[in-house]
Computed example of a mutant assay.
Amino acid sequence: MNLTELTERLHAIRDRNDWRQFHSPKNLAMAASVEMAELVEIFQWLSEEQSRQLPAEQLEHAGQEVGDIVLYLLLMCAELGIDMEQAVRAKLADSERRFSS
């Protein structure tokens, strides 16, 4: 996944539609949260086993929501000047230090 290319494509959509005015970090965080809630809704009331074996339609829907979340996070990183790949690698390294025996 080329995050730079994805961000450039997102910015092209944003700019064509004059959405930059709405893409403050606060708004992007709220939008990502709404999309996360939509992902959670797919799993509401399912058993653990059912949540691991989604029917094709629900699995596709879950993938769409994951995509929405990631795209909003990419936009937020661009607005804040956060290098997403570096942030994820740093967090993973921290988790490895904290939780590896």
Rank of each mutant, 00 (worst) to 15 (best):
L6A: 05
T7M: 05
T7G: 00
E8P: 01
H11W: 15
H11I: 08
I13P: 02
I13L: 15
I13C: 10
R16N: 14
R16W: 07
N17G: 06
N17I: 02
R20Y: 08
F22I: 03
H23S: 08
K26G: 12
A29N: 10
A31H: 02
A32L: 05
V34S: 03
A37Y: 14
A37F: 13
L39M: 11
V40C: 13
V40N: 05
W45G: 09
L46V: 02
L46R: 07
E48R: 08
E48N: 06
S51P: 02
R52A: 08
Q53Y: 15
A56K: 07
L59Q: 14
E60C: 08
E60R: 09
G63E: 03
E65Y: 01
V66I: 15
G67Q: 05
D68M: 06
V70A: 08
V70F: 13
V70Y: 04
Y72F: 15
L73N: 00
L74W: 00
L75Y: 03
M76F: 13
M76S: 04
A78F: 12
E79W: 04
L80E: 08
G81Q: 06
G81L: 08
I82T: 10
E85F: 07
Q86W: 05
A87D: 13
A87I: 11
V88A: 12
R89T: 11
K91N: 03
K91Q: 06
K91V: 03
A93S: 14
